[in-house]
């Protein structure tokens, strides 16, 4: 009771003085950083390693106890201890042997309902819906452009981030830390590569991930409108609108527009003015909130 009183006082003191040490208190932040990330070893190997280490330490602890107390080892329970040690070690080795599921395995195992949504096209959002969220201050929109760097440099939606599919498992840890009202939209030229990326992110348990329907090609088809005013102002050369390439077939995930220069997000279509467009779309985004987590 005195102890709890002391604890309370300690917590009280900390609460009211923490701002003086906040620089140190917030230093060396590494986020969700596990032994697997640190040692670059598979999870199962670490689990088995810790179990075996524990068995040695338990044995050592008993040796020390007996040495300090001058007692003889109590052999009466040795049988049970060995059984316990053997069973937990075997379990740990089984865990190491099975291994942890990859993102795609996780996608198939954990999220059967997501595959259904994908097939029903419930996760492919139309360009106007994306634009409405870009313009929406209450929702943070993170756009992940998974095309090759060359295509990305030619043209990309403003604020979209270029990432390769291989980077996604690592990146997903960052994405999961973002606030609950964050919307993730993956995009490629059409949908094929974006769908692969979507499966990985869903498999990594990132919530609120959607695919840009029809990809960048569809975006350009929607927003690549020649602005007469700019053309007259003489900026039309720099911002010459990309032209559709007649030969590129649809659905091959290649860019079907030709760009005069690799101007990235400098084209008007990279940043359409939301006020100039009507938002006509079938709403599909359903933002999911998070359950509070943490410990003490």
């Amino acid at each position: 009771m005195f102890f709890v009183g002391g604890l309370s006082v300690g917590i009280f003191i900390f609460s009211n003085t923490v701002d003086r040490i906040s620089d140190f208190w917030n230093s060396s932040y590494m986020g969700r950083y596990t032994l697997m990330d640190w040692l670059h070893l598979p999870t199962g190997v670490i689990v088995a390693g810790i179990v075996i280490l524990a068995m040695f330490l338990f044995w050592g602890a008993e040796v020390v106890e007996n040495a300090v107390n001058g007692t003889k080892p109590d052999k009466s329970k040795t049988k049970y201890k060995l059984i316990g040690a053997a069973s937990i070690s075997v379990l740990a080795l089984i865990v190491a042997f099975i291994g942890q599921p990859t993102p795609l395995e996780r996608y198939q195992k954990f999220f059967p309902d997501k595959a259904e949504q994908l097939a029903n096209r419930e996760v492919q959002i139309e360009p106007p819906e994306l634009l409405s969220y870009i313009a929406n201050d209450h929702v943070r929109t993170v756009m992940l452009d998974v095309r090759d760097e060359a295509d990305y440099n030619l043209f990309h939606i403003k604020d979209a981030k270029n990432v390769s599919i291989d980077e996604l498992p690592q990146l997903s840890k960052e994405l999961m830390k973002m606030p609950a009202n964050t919307l993730f939209v993956v995009m490629s030229n059409d949908e094929a590569r974006a769908t692969e990326a979507w499966k990985i992110l869903v498999g990594e348990s990132v919530d609120n991930v959607y695919i840009l329907e029809g990809g960048i090609n569809n975006w350009l088809a929607t927003y690549n409108i020649v602005n007469e005013e700019e053309r007259l102002k003489g900026t039309a050369i720099a911002f010459a609108p990309p032209e559709p390439i007649a030969t590129a077939a649809t659905g091959t995930d290649t860019l079907r527009y030709e760009f005069p220069a690799a101007l990235g997000d400098q084209y008007p279509a990279a940043e359409p003015n939301p006020e100039e467009y009507e938002f006509e779309f079938t709403p599909k985004v359903k933002l999911k909130t998070k359950q509070p987590a943490g410990g003490g």
Partner: peptide, 8 residues
């Protein structure tokens, strides 16, 4: 997973 602030 408890976030790591190593030195604190």
């Amino acid at each position: 997973v408890n976030e790591t602030y190593l030195w604190p």
